[in-house]
Design a binder for these strands. Structure first.
Lengths: 231, 231
DNA sequence: AATCTATTCAATAATTATATTGAATAGATT
DNA sequence: AATCTATTCAATATAATTATTGAATAGATT
Protein backbone atom coordinates (compact mmCIF):
# COMPACT_ATOMS: atom_id res chain seq x y z
CA UNK A 1 0.00 0.00 0.00
CA UNK A 2 2.74 2.43 0.96
CA UNK A 3 4.61 1.34 -2.13
CA UNK A 4 1.63 2.32 -4.25
CA UNK A 5 1.63 5.86 -2.85
CA UNK A 6 5.37 6.02 -3.40
CA UNK A 7 4.90 5.14 -7.08
CA UNK A 8 2.07 7.59 -7.54
CA UNK A 9 3.77 10.56 -5.93
CA UNK A 10 7.46 10.12 -6.51
CA UNK A 11 7.97 8.03 -9.62
CA UNK A 12 6.92 9.19 -13.03
CA UNK A 13 4.13 7.22 -14.61
CA UNK A 14 5.43 4.32 -16.65
CA UNK A 15 4.25 3.60 -20.16
CA UNK A 16 1.95 0.73 -19.32
CA UNK A 17 0.32 2.64 -16.49
CA UNK A 18 -0.18 5.60 -18.83
CA UNK A 19 -1.84 3.51 -21.50
CA UNK A 20 -3.98 1.57 -19.02
CA UNK A 21 -5.18 4.86 -17.57
CA UNK A 22 -5.91 6.58 -20.88
CA UNK A 23 -7.60 3.66 -22.61
CA UNK A 24 -9.38 2.87 -19.35
CA UNK A 25 -10.88 6.34 -19.11
CA UNK A 26 -11.93 6.29 -22.76
CA UNK A 27 -13.50 2.87 -22.25
CA UNK A 28 -15.54 4.37 -19.42
CA UNK A 29 -16.86 7.03 -21.77
CA UNK A 30 -17.65 4.41 -24.36
CA UNK A 31 -19.34 2.24 -21.74
CA UNK A 32 -21.59 5.14 -20.82
CA UNK A 33 -22.81 5.11 -24.42
CA UNK A 34 -23.05 1.32 -24.67
CA UNK A 35 -26.67 0.84 -23.79
CA UNK A 36 -29.67 0.94 -26.10
CA UNK A 37 -31.66 3.29 -23.89
CA UNK A 38 -28.77 5.64 -23.34
CA UNK A 39 -28.11 5.81 -27.07
CA UNK A 40 -31.74 6.65 -27.64
CA UNK A 41 -31.50 9.36 -24.99
CA UNK A 42 -28.40 10.85 -26.61
CA UNK A 43 -30.16 10.79 -29.97
CA UNK A 44 -33.13 12.60 -28.43
CA UNK A 45 -31.02 15.18 -26.60
CA UNK A 46 -29.38 16.08 -29.90
CA UNK A 47 -32.58 18.12 -30.46
CA UNK A 48 -32.08 20.18 -27.32
CA UNK A 49 -32.94 19.99 -23.60
CA UNK A 50 -35.62 17.65 -22.22
CA UNK A 51 -36.92 16.87 -18.72
CA UNK A 52 -36.51 13.46 -17.12
CA UNK A 53 -40.24 12.90 -17.44
CA UNK A 54 -40.24 13.67 -21.17
CA UNK A 55 -37.22 11.50 -21.76
CA UNK A 56 -38.80 8.64 -19.84
CA UNK A 57 -42.05 8.90 -21.74
CA UNK A 58 -40.43 9.18 -25.18
CA UNK A 59 -38.12 6.21 -24.59
CA UNK A 60 -40.72 4.10 -22.79
CA UNK A 61 -38.70 3.86 -19.58
CA UNK A 62 -39.89 4.31 -16.02
CA UNK A 63 -38.89 7.67 -14.59
CA UNK A 64 -36.58 6.06 -12.03
CA UNK A 65 -34.86 4.02 -14.70
CA UNK A 66 -34.50 6.99 -17.05
CA UNK A 67 -33.07 8.98 -14.15
CA UNK A 68 -30.48 6.28 -13.48
CA UNK A 69 -29.42 6.19 -17.11
CA UNK A 70 -29.16 9.97 -17.08
CA UNK A 71 -26.96 9.78 -13.98
CA UNK A 72 -24.68 7.41 -15.85
CA UNK A 73 -24.46 9.81 -18.78
CA UNK A 74 -23.92 12.77 -16.49
CA UNK A 75 -21.12 11.19 -14.50
CA UNK A 76 -19.32 10.49 -17.78
CA UNK A 77 -19.80 14.13 -18.77
CA UNK A 78 -21.85 13.25 -21.83
CA UNK A 79 -24.82 15.34 -20.70
CA UNK A 80 -25.29 18.41 -18.54
CA UNK A 81 -28.24 19.74 -16.56
CA UNK A 82 -29.96 23.04 -15.94
CA UNK A 83 -32.89 23.67 -13.69
CA UNK A 84 -36.14 25.22 -14.85
CA UNK A 85 -38.68 25.61 -12.03
CA UNK A 86 -39.47 22.20 -10.66
CA UNK A 87 -37.96 20.51 -13.69
CA UNK A 88 -34.39 19.59 -14.53
CA UNK A 89 -33.46 19.86 -18.18
CA UNK A 90 -30.89 17.49 -19.55
CA UNK A 91 -28.94 18.32 -22.71
CA UNK A 92 -25.82 17.08 -24.49
CA UNK A 93 -22.55 18.28 -22.99
CA UNK A 94 -21.36 19.54 -26.37
CA UNK A 95 -20.92 19.00 -30.07
CA UNK A 96 -18.38 16.21 -29.65
CA UNK A 97 -21.03 14.01 -28.07
CA UNK A 98 -23.17 14.26 -31.18
CA UNK A 99 -20.09 13.68 -33.34
CA UNK A 100 -19.27 10.46 -31.49
CA UNK A 101 -22.88 9.29 -31.70
CA UNK A 102 -22.93 10.03 -35.44
CA UNK A 103 -19.69 8.14 -35.98
CA UNK A 104 -21.07 5.14 -34.10
CA UNK A 105 -24.32 5.33 -36.06
CA UNK A 106 -22.50 5.35 -39.38
CA UNK A 107 -20.26 2.52 -38.22
CA UNK A 108 -23.33 0.47 -37.45
CA UNK A 109 -25.12 1.34 -40.65
CA UNK A 110 -22.12 0.42 -42.79
CA UNK A 111 -20.64 -2.67 -41.13
CA UNK A 112 -23.48 -4.13 -39.10
CA UNK A 113 -25.88 -5.79 -41.51
CA UNK A 114 -28.61 -5.95 -38.84
CA UNK A 115 -28.91 -2.19 -38.49
CA UNK A 116 -29.34 -1.50 -42.19
CA UNK A 117 -31.65 -4.47 -42.58
CA UNK A 118 -33.86 -3.37 -39.72
CA UNK A 119 -34.17 0.17 -41.06
CA UNK A 120 -35.02 -1.10 -44.55
CA UNK A 121 -37.56 -3.60 -43.26
CA UNK A 122 -39.23 -0.99 -41.13
CA UNK A 123 -39.41 1.53 -43.97
CA UNK A 124 -40.74 -1.18 -46.27
CA UNK A 125 -43.71 -1.48 -43.91
CA UNK A 126 -44.73 2.04 -45.05
CA UNK A 127 -44.95 1.08 -48.73
CA UNK A 128 -42.36 2.61 -51.01
CA UNK A 129 -40.65 5.12 -48.79
CA UNK A 130 -38.48 7.50 -50.79
CA UNK A 131 -35.45 8.86 -48.96
CA UNK A 132 -33.27 11.76 -49.94
CA UNK A 133 -30.01 12.47 -48.16
CA UNK A 134 -29.00 15.85 -46.79
CA UNK A 135 -26.41 16.45 -49.51
CA UNK A 136 -28.88 16.01 -52.36
CA UNK A 137 -31.59 17.88 -50.51
CA UNK A 138 -29.34 20.88 -49.91
CA UNK A 139 -29.24 21.49 -53.66
CA UNK A 140 -33.01 21.24 -54.05
CA UNK A 141 -33.52 23.64 -51.15
CA UNK A 142 -31.11 26.12 -52.70
CA UNK A 143 -33.04 25.99 -55.98
CA UNK A 144 -36.36 26.25 -54.11
CA UNK A 145 -37.61 23.08 -55.79
CA UNK A 146 -39.27 21.45 -52.78
CA UNK A 147 -41.58 22.24 -49.90
CA UNK A 148 -39.80 21.40 -46.67
CA UNK A 149 -41.73 20.26 -43.61
CA UNK A 150 -40.23 20.10 -40.13
CA UNK A 151 -42.49 17.51 -38.48
CA UNK A 152 -40.88 17.64 -35.04
CA UNK A 153 -42.71 19.27 -32.11
CA UNK A 154 -42.91 23.02 -32.62
CA UNK A 155 -40.60 23.72 -29.67
CA UNK A 156 -37.74 21.94 -31.44
CA UNK A 157 -38.46 23.79 -34.69
CA UNK A 158 -38.25 27.06 -32.76
CA UNK A 159 -34.80 26.19 -31.45
CA UNK A 160 -33.51 25.93 -35.01
CA UNK A 161 -34.65 24.43 -38.30
CA UNK A 162 -33.65 23.93 -41.91
CA UNK A 163 -33.66 27.14 -43.95
CA UNK A 164 -37.10 27.72 -45.46
CA UNK A 165 -38.72 24.76 -43.64
CA UNK A 166 -42.29 25.07 -42.36
CA UNK A 167 -43.20 23.83 -38.89
CA UNK A 168 -45.73 21.02 -39.23
CA UNK A 169 -45.76 18.82 -36.13
CA UNK A 170 -46.82 15.35 -37.12
CA UNK A 171 -50.03 15.41 -35.04
CA UNK A 172 -51.18 18.60 -36.83
CA UNK A 173 -50.33 17.43 -40.34
CA UNK A 174 -53.67 15.74 -40.97
CA UNK A 175 -55.62 18.90 -40.18
CA UNK A 176 -53.36 21.32 -42.07
CA UNK A 177 -52.88 19.07 -45.08
CA UNK A 178 -55.30 20.96 -47.31
CA UNK A 179 -53.17 24.12 -47.20
CA UNK A 180 -50.25 22.38 -48.92
CA UNK A 181 -49.71 22.88 -52.63
CA UNK A 182 -49.31 19.82 -54.83
CA UNK A 183 -47.11 21.69 -57.31
CA UNK A 184 -43.84 20.71 -55.66
CA UNK A 185 -42.45 17.59 -54.05
CA UNK A 186 -42.75 17.70 -50.27
CA UNK A 187 -39.78 16.65 -48.16
CA UNK A 188 -40.33 15.92 -44.48
CA UNK A 189 -37.57 15.71 -41.92
CA UNK A 190 -37.47 15.02 -38.21
CA UNK A 191 -35.04 14.20 -35.42
CA UNK A 192 -32.80 11.67 -37.10
CA UNK A 193 -32.61 8.55 -39.27
CA UNK A 194 -34.26 6.44 -36.56
CA UNK A 195 -37.05 8.91 -35.83
CA UNK A 196 -40.38 7.85 -37.30
CA UNK A 197 -42.18 11.21 -37.45
CA UNK A 198 -41.05 11.81 -41.04
CA UNK A 199 -42.05 8.28 -42.07
CA UNK A 200 -45.54 8.86 -40.69
CA UNK A 201 -45.70 12.22 -42.46
CA UNK A 202 -44.64 10.82 -45.84
CA UNK A 203 -47.12 7.95 -45.54
CA UNK A 204 -49.94 10.40 -44.80
CA UNK A 205 -48.94 12.77 -47.58
CA UNK A 206 -48.73 9.98 -50.16
CA UNK A 207 -52.14 8.70 -49.10
CA UNK A 208 -53.52 12.11 -50.04
CA UNK A 209 -51.86 12.18 -53.43
CA UNK A 210 -48.78 14.24 -52.68
CA UNK A 211 -45.33 13.44 -54.03
CA UNK A 212 -43.40 13.09 -50.77
CA UNK A 213 -40.00 12.00 -49.50
CA UNK A 214 -38.23 11.97 -46.17
CA UNK A 215 -34.76 13.28 -45.46
CA UNK A 216 -32.65 10.31 -44.46
CA UNK A 217 -30.88 12.14 -41.65
CA UNK A 218 -32.28 14.54 -39.06
CA UNK A 219 -32.01 18.22 -38.33
CA UNK A 220 -28.84 17.94 -36.19
CA UNK A 221 -27.06 16.15 -39.05
CA UNK A 222 -28.11 18.90 -41.45
CA UNK A 223 -26.76 21.55 -39.08
CA UNK A 224 -23.51 19.67 -38.45
CA UNK A 225 -22.87 19.48 -42.19
CA UNK A 226 -23.03 23.26 -42.26
CA UNK A 227 -26.09 23.60 -44.45
CA UNK A 228 -28.25 26.71 -43.96
CA UNK A 229 -30.22 26.90 -40.74
CA UNK A 230 -32.78 29.45 -39.57
CA UNK A 231 -33.52 30.85 -36.10
CA UNK B 1 -44.49 -18.27 -27.94
CA UNK B 2 -46.69 -18.82 -30.97
CA UNK B 3 -47.91 -15.26 -30.61
CA UNK B 4 -44.32 -14.09 -30.86
CA UNK B 5 -43.79 -15.87 -34.17
CA UNK B 6 -47.08 -14.46 -35.40
CA UNK B 7 -45.92 -10.93 -34.63
CA UNK B 8 -42.53 -11.44 -36.26
CA UNK B 9 -43.80 -12.97 -39.48
CA UNK B 10 -47.19 -11.44 -40.10
CA UNK B 11 -47.32 -8.08 -38.44
CA UNK B 12 -45.16 -5.22 -39.49
CA UNK B 13 -42.62 -4.12 -36.95
CA UNK B 14 -44.00 -1.51 -34.59
CA UNK B 15 -42.15 1.66 -33.72
CA UNK B 16 -40.94 0.58 -30.31
CA UNK B 17 -39.67 -2.74 -31.66
CA UNK B 18 -37.89 -0.90 -34.44
CA UNK B 19 -36.14 1.48 -32.08
CA UNK B 20 -35.26 -1.22 -29.59
CA UNK B 21 -33.71 -3.23 -32.37
CA UNK B 22 -31.74 -0.39 -33.96
CA UNK B 23 -30.44 1.16 -30.75
CA UNK B 24 -29.82 -2.34 -29.42
CA UNK B 25 -27.63 -3.27 -32.36
CA UNK B 26 -25.72 -0.02 -32.15
CA UNK B 27 -25.22 -0.54 -28.42
CA UNK B 28 -23.67 -3.93 -29.24
CA UNK B 29 -21.20 -2.24 -31.54
CA UNK B 30 -20.42 0.33 -28.88
CA UNK B 31 -20.06 -2.39 -26.27
CA UNK B 32 -17.50 -4.12 -28.44
CA UNK B 33 -15.42 -0.95 -28.21
CA UNK B 34 -16.06 -0.39 -24.51
CA UNK B 35 -13.03 -2.08 -23.06
CA UNK B 36 -9.57 -0.60 -22.44
CA UNK B 37 -7.74 -3.47 -24.12
CA UNK B 38 -10.01 -3.51 -27.14
CA UNK B 39 -9.61 0.23 -27.60
CA UNK B 40 -5.85 -0.21 -27.48
CA UNK B 41 -6.13 -2.98 -30.06
CA UNK B 42 -8.23 -0.80 -32.36
CA UNK B 43 -5.72 2.01 -31.96
CA UNK B 44 -2.91 -0.38 -32.87
CA UNK B 45 -4.72 -1.89 -35.85
CA UNK B 46 -5.18 1.61 -37.26
CA UNK B 47 -1.55 1.16 -38.41
CA UNK B 48 -2.32 -1.97 -40.42
CA UNK B 49 -2.57 -5.74 -39.88
CA UNK B 50 -1.00 -7.50 -36.89
CA UNK B 51 -0.91 -11.12 -35.69
CA UNK B 52 -2.54 -12.22 -32.44
CA UNK B 53 0.89 -12.77 -30.95
CA UNK B 54 2.08 -9.27 -31.81
CA UNK B 55 -1.12 -7.72 -30.53
CA UNK B 56 -0.84 -9.68 -27.29
CA UNK B 57 2.76 -8.68 -26.76
CA UNK B 58 2.22 -4.99 -27.56
CA UNK B 59 -0.80 -4.69 -25.29
CA UNK B 60 0.64 -6.86 -22.52
CA UNK B 61 -2.17 -9.41 -22.71
CA UNK B 62 -1.91 -13.18 -22.70
CA UNK B 63 -2.38 -14.68 -26.16
CA UNK B 64 -5.62 -16.38 -25.12
CA UNK B 65 -7.02 -13.18 -23.70
CA UNK B 66 -6.00 -11.14 -26.73
CA UNK B 67 -7.62 -13.77 -28.91
CA UNK B 68 -10.87 -13.51 -26.98
CA UNK B 69 -10.92 -9.75 -27.28
CA UNK B 70 -10.25 -10.10 -31.00
CA UNK B 71 -13.17 -12.51 -31.30
CA UNK B 72 -15.37 -9.91 -29.66
CA UNK B 73 -14.23 -7.27 -32.12
CA UNK B 74 -14.60 -9.66 -35.04
CA UNK B 75 -18.13 -10.73 -34.20
CA UNK B 76 -19.11 -7.06 -34.11
CA UNK B 77 -17.52 -6.59 -37.53
CA UNK B 78 -15.02 -4.04 -36.24
CA UNK B 79 -12.03 -6.07 -37.43
CA UNK B 80 -11.44 -8.57 -40.21
CA UNK B 81 -8.87 -11.33 -40.66
CA UNK B 82 -6.62 -12.66 -43.38
CA UNK B 83 -4.35 -15.69 -43.14
CA UNK B 84 -0.63 -15.51 -43.82
CA UNK B 85 1.05 -18.92 -43.42
CA UNK B 86 0.57 -20.08 -39.88
CA UNK B 87 -0.41 -16.60 -38.76
CA UNK B 88 -3.72 -14.80 -38.83
CA UNK B 89 -3.54 -11.09 -39.46
CA UNK B 90 -6.16 -8.87 -37.88
CA UNK B 91 -6.95 -5.45 -39.30
CA UNK B 92 -9.68 -2.83 -38.97
CA UNK B 93 -12.83 -3.59 -40.94
CA UNK B 94 -12.74 -0.17 -42.60
CA UNK B 95 -12.30 3.56 -42.29
CA UNK B 96 -15.47 4.06 -40.26
CA UNK B 97 -13.95 2.11 -37.39
CA UNK B 98 -11.09 4.55 -37.18
CA UNK B 99 -13.53 7.45 -37.50
CA UNK B 100 -15.55 6.19 -34.55
CA UNK B 101 -12.41 5.62 -32.48
CA UNK B 102 -11.20 9.13 -33.30
CA UNK B 103 -14.56 10.65 -32.34
CA UNK B 104 -14.49 8.80 -29.02
CA UNK B 105 -10.89 9.87 -28.42
CA UNK B 106 -11.73 13.53 -29.02
CA UNK B 107 -14.81 13.23 -26.85
CA UNK B 108 -12.64 11.91 -24.03
CA UNK B 109 -9.94 14.49 -24.52
CA UNK B 110 -12.40 17.38 -24.49
CA UNK B 111 -14.96 16.45 -21.83
CA UNK B 112 -13.20 13.95 -19.59
CA UNK B 113 -10.72 15.83 -17.47
CA UNK B 114 -8.93 12.62 -16.50
CA UNK B 115 -7.83 11.83 -20.04
CA UNK B 116 -6.27 15.21 -20.74
CA UNK B 117 -4.74 15.33 -17.28
CA UNK B 118 -3.15 11.91 -17.68
CA UNK B 119 -1.65 12.78 -21.05
CA UNK B 120 -0.25 16.07 -19.73
CA UNK B 121 1.18 14.46 -16.60
CA UNK B 122 2.80 11.73 -18.63
CA UNK B 123 4.34 14.18 -21.10
CA UNK B 124 5.53 16.35 -18.22
CA UNK B 125 7.62 13.39 -17.09
CA UNK B 126 9.72 13.89 -20.23
CA UNK B 127 10.63 17.48 -19.38
CA UNK B 128 9.23 20.18 -21.61
CA UNK B 129 7.64 18.18 -24.40
CA UNK B 130 6.72 20.38 -27.35
CA UNK B 131 3.75 19.22 -29.38
CA UNK B 132 2.68 20.40 -32.79
CA UNK B 133 -0.66 19.43 -34.26
CA UNK B 134 -1.16 18.01 -37.73
CA UNK B 135 -2.71 21.21 -39.08
CA UNK B 136 0.24 23.40 -38.11
CA UNK B 137 2.73 20.75 -39.14
CA UNK B 138 1.23 20.42 -42.62
CA UNK B 139 2.26 24.00 -43.37
CA UNK B 140 5.82 23.48 -42.15
CA UNK B 141 6.11 20.32 -44.23
CA UNK B 142 4.88 22.14 -47.31
CA UNK B 143 7.51 24.84 -46.81
CA UNK B 144 10.17 22.18 -46.10
CA UNK B 145 10.99 23.83 -42.79
CA UNK B 146 11.36 20.69 -40.67
CA UNK B 147 12.98 17.27 -40.72
CA UNK B 148 10.24 14.68 -40.25
CA UNK B 149 10.98 11.38 -38.53
CA UNK B 150 8.63 8.39 -38.64
CA UNK B 151 9.66 6.54 -35.50
CA UNK B 152 7.30 3.58 -35.93
CA UNK B 153 8.64 0.14 -36.93
CA UNK B 154 9.88 0.20 -40.52
CA UNK B 155 7.11 -2.15 -41.69
CA UNK B 156 4.49 0.43 -40.78
CA UNK B 157 6.45 3.20 -42.48
CA UNK B 158 6.54 1.08 -45.62
CA UNK B 159 2.78 0.73 -45.64
CA UNK B 160 2.42 4.51 -45.85
CA UNK B 161 3.98 7.55 -44.23
CA UNK B 162 3.86 11.33 -44.14
CA UNK B 163 5.18 12.96 -47.31
CA UNK B 164 8.96 13.52 -47.01
CA UNK B 165 9.27 11.68 -43.68
CA UNK B 166 12.35 9.53 -42.99
CA UNK B 167 11.97 6.11 -41.42
CA UNK B 168 13.72 6.10 -38.07
CA UNK B 169 12.42 3.33 -35.82
CA UNK B 170 12.83 4.38 -32.24
CA UNK B 171 15.29 1.59 -31.41
CA UNK B 172 17.61 2.71 -34.22
CA UNK B 173 17.43 6.41 -33.44
CA UNK B 174 20.32 6.37 -30.96
CA UNK B 175 22.72 4.81 -33.46
CA UNK B 176 21.67 6.95 -36.44
CA UNK B 177 21.48 10.20 -34.53
CA UNK B 178 24.78 11.57 -35.78
CA UNK B 179 23.53 11.64 -39.40
CA UNK B 180 20.84 14.18 -38.56
CA UNK B 181 21.43 17.86 -39.31
CA UNK B 182 20.92 20.40 -36.54
CA UNK B 183 19.97 23.11 -39.02
CA UNK B 184 16.22 22.43 -38.86
CA UNK B 185 13.73 21.55 -36.15
CA UNK B 186 13.05 17.82 -36.04
CA UNK B 187 9.46 16.61 -35.72
CA UNK B 188 8.85 12.99 -34.75
CA UNK B 189 5.55 11.21 -35.17
CA UNK B 190 4.31 7.73 -34.40
CA UNK B 191 1.09 5.72 -34.14
CA UNK B 192 -1.16 8.18 -32.37
CA UNK B 193 -1.53 10.60 -29.49
CA UNK B 194 -1.21 7.80 -26.91
CA UNK B 195 1.81 6.16 -28.55
CA UNK B 196 5.05 6.88 -26.71
CA UNK B 197 7.57 6.26 -29.48
CA UNK B 198 7.60 9.93 -30.48
CA UNK B 199 7.96 11.03 -26.86
CA UNK B 200 10.99 8.80 -26.45
CA UNK B 201 12.42 10.12 -29.71
CA UNK B 202 11.99 13.77 -28.75
CA UNK B 203 13.53 13.18 -25.34
CA UNK B 204 16.57 11.52 -26.92
CA UNK B 205 16.93 14.21 -29.59
CA UNK B 206 16.74 17.03 -27.04
CA UNK B 207 19.33 15.31 -24.88
CA UNK B 208 21.68 15.52 -27.84
CA UNK B 209 21.08 19.19 -28.49
CA UNK B 210 18.47 19.02 -31.22
CA UNK B 211 15.42 21.23 -31.42
CA UNK B 212 12.68 18.60 -31.44
CA UNK B 213 8.90 18.33 -31.23
CA UNK B 214 6.36 15.55 -31.53
CA UNK B 215 3.26 15.59 -33.70
CA UNK B 216 0.30 15.44 -31.35
CA UNK B 217 -1.64 12.96 -33.48
CA UNK B 218 -0.43 9.86 -35.33
CA UNK B 219 0.01 8.85 -38.93
CA UNK B 220 -3.57 7.62 -39.40
CA UNK B 221 -4.92 10.99 -38.25
CA UNK B 222 -2.64 12.77 -40.70
CA UNK B 223 -3.86 10.55 -43.53
CA UNK B 224 -7.53 10.93 -42.55
CA UNK B 225 -7.19 14.71 -42.67
CA UNK B 226 -6.12 14.35 -46.29
CA UNK B 227 -2.59 15.68 -45.87
CA UNK B 228 0.06 14.37 -48.30
CA UNK B 229 1.10 10.75 -47.84
CA UNK B 230 3.79 8.73 -49.59
CA UNK B 231 3.91 5.06 -50.63
C1' DA C 1 0.49 -38.86 -43.36
C1' DA C 2 2.60 -37.05 -39.28
C1' DT C 3 4.01 -33.18 -36.90
C1' DC C 4 4.04 -28.57 -35.41
C1' DT C 5 2.21 -24.21 -33.89
C1' DA C 6 -0.60 -20.05 -33.91
C1' DT C 7 -4.94 -19.46 -32.61
C1' DT C 8 -9.34 -20.59 -30.54
C1' DC C 9 -12.41 -22.70 -27.33
C1' DA C 10 -14.59 -24.12 -22.84
C1' DA C 11 -15.03 -23.89 -18.02
C1' DT C 12 -14.58 -21.16 -14.03
C1' DA C 13 -14.79 -17.61 -10.49
C1' DA C 14 -14.96 -12.78 -9.72
C1' DT C 15 -16.64 -8.53 -11.03
C1' DT C 16 -19.90 -5.37 -13.10
C1' DA C 17 -24.35 -3.89 -15.35
C1' DT C 18 -29.40 -3.72 -15.32
C1' DA C 19 -34.58 -3.04 -14.22
C1' DT C 20 -37.67 -2.82 -10.53
C1' DT C 21 -39.48 -1.29 -6.34
C1' DG C 22 -40.48 1.95 -2.96
C1' DA C 23 -38.53 5.42 -0.04
C1' DA C 24 -35.89 9.83 0.29
C1' DT C 25 -34.61 14.43 -1.19
C1' DA C 26 -34.25 19.04 -2.95
C1' DG C 27 -36.16 22.89 -4.07
C1' DA C 28 -40.30 25.17 -6.01
C1' DT C 29 -44.82 26.71 -4.88
C1' DT C 30 -48.51 27.82 -1.72
C1' DA D 1 -43.36 27.19 7.35
C1' DA D 2 -45.87 23.56 5.16
C1' DT D 3 -46.82 21.25 1.12
C1' DC D 4 -46.03 19.43 -3.28
C1' DT D 5 -43.60 17.12 -6.93
C1' DA D 6 -39.91 16.10 -10.17
C1' DT D 7 -36.06 13.74 -9.51
C1' DT D 8 -32.77 10.78 -7.20
C1' DC D 9 -31.27 7.16 -4.21
C1' DA D 10 -30.81 2.46 -2.09
C1' DA D 11 -31.63 -2.29 -2.04
C1' DT D 12 -32.21 -6.34 -4.64
C1' DA D 13 -32.26 -10.14 -7.84
C1' DT D 14 -30.94 -11.29 -12.41
C1' DA D 15 -27.94 -11.13 -16.19
C1' DA D 16 -23.65 -10.03 -18.58
C1' DT D 17 -18.55 -9.24 -18.74
C1' DT D 18 -13.86 -10.41 -17.67
C1' DA D 19 -9.09 -12.85 -17.00
C1' DT D 20 -7.19 -17.22 -16.25
C1' DT D 21 -6.26 -21.86 -17.13
C1' DG D 22 -5.42 -25.70 -19.90
C1' DA D 23 -7.17 -28.35 -23.63
C1' DA D 24 -8.66 -28.48 -28.56
C1' DT D 25 -8.34 -27.21 -33.37
C1' DA D 26 -7.16 -25.90 -37.99
C1' DG D 27 -4.17 -25.69 -41.26
C1' DA D 28 0.74 -25.05 -42.52
C1' DT D 29 5.02 -27.40 -42.84
C1' DT D 30 7.90 -31.48 -42.97
Amino acid sequence: MLWLYFRIFFLRMNKREFKDKVYGELAKVSKAMSNPHRLEIIDLLAQGPFTVEDIASYTGLSVANASQHLQTLKSSKLVKISRNGNYINYSLAGENVFNAWTALRELGLVYNAEVGKTVNEFRAGFGDMDCIDADQLSKLVEEDKVILLDVRPEEEYNRGHVHRAISMPIEQLGAKLKNLSKSKTIVAYCRGPFCVYADDAVALLKKHGYKAQRMKEGFPDWALKGYPVDQ
